[in-house]
Design a protein around this nucleic acid. Structure first.
Lengths: 158, 158
DNA sequence: AGTAAAATCACCCGAAAGGATGAGGCAGTT
DNA sequence: AACTGCCTCATCCTTTCGGGTGATTTTACT
């Protein structure tokens, strides 16, 4: 139903606006007869109105989605000049990660899956999940991608 | 010289067409008086002509200008004064990513979920999935974490 | 005017990830 | 011995991801 309306939006728009303008025209004609306004002015008004109609219709019908959305967003960016990586030990200490959690984090940062990390560390998948879970808690993040991003900005990992 | 004409194409176009129409108007008025054509028909003709003028003008003048560019501004707040990120354009070109895919990649790198990216870009979750899928193909990776890692290594994203 | 690429959205399905919880083992401390 | 922190593993459940496919619409270019 809504789709049908959308599909024929153009026709509906044009039809209704035309009807509205015809009414306006009649009213103007009436005014014209009553007040005996000069023909020139009447014609002028008609011309302006219909020029406007043309412009409006064209804009509405031919460029319906000509919206330009400009998004301005403030982003906090922590960038550390690092030709050579230098681990930020203080931040690392603050997080209070265990050695195993840090290992998991580093492997995560390489894009490895939990299963791959498990194989790498010779532990079960469940163990990796446990580590990653605690890791996320300590780092106050919800996903591994967030953890990696945060760890990099804090210079905990290269 | 030609440049000047191009620059003021709008004004010239509008002016000349207006003048032409006024002439036409006068001629029609003349005909109207001579032949005693009904006022309704006269008005109708005027209306049609000027609607056409509006449509034509809009198409001529605003269509080329309708080449709107969606700009996404990022005001970066640097907490740590640091050297600016320098994008490796060559690597980026090699990957042949579309603008949308790059946007998705950048938001991924911030640790956002597909759903969050969808909200950010005002598109559906499915669309983000499509973009990310193609992104992984082009980057020859299997996971978002790998994509982010590779992109950072290649200096495609900060 | 017709084509090609890009962007959008949808549906299905399986895999991966993540949350919650419990539990056993092991080393160091008190 | 009791306590604590860490590592290990498990089960259950939900959410998120990713692959595959197909469709429509925009946009760009010719």
């Amino acid at each position: 139903m809504i789709k049908a309306i959308k599909k024929h939006k153009g026709a509906i728009l044009y039809g209704s606006s035309l009807a509205l303008l015809l009414l306006l025209l009649r009213w103007l004609e009436f005014r014209f007869l009553i007040l005996s306004t000069s023909l020139d002015i009447y014609i002028g008004i008609i011309a302006i109105i219909f020029t406007g109609l043309g412009v409006w219709l064209t804009l509405k019908l031919f460029k319906p989605k000509a919206k330009t959305i400009v998004i301005e967003k403030e982003v906090e960016v922590y960038i550390t000049p690092s030709p050579q990586f230098e681990r930020n030990q203080k931040e690392l200490d603050n997080l209070n990660l265990t050695s195993r959690e840090l290992e998991v984090l580093e492997l995560m940062a390489k894009g490895m899956s939990n299963q791959e990390i498990a194989n790498e560390l010779f532990v079960s998948l469940n163990t990796v999940k446990t580590h990653s879970g605690k890791l996320f808690e300590k780092m106050e993040v919800k996903r591994r991608t967030q953890a990696v991003d945060k760890a990099k900005t804090l210079s905990i990992i290269p």
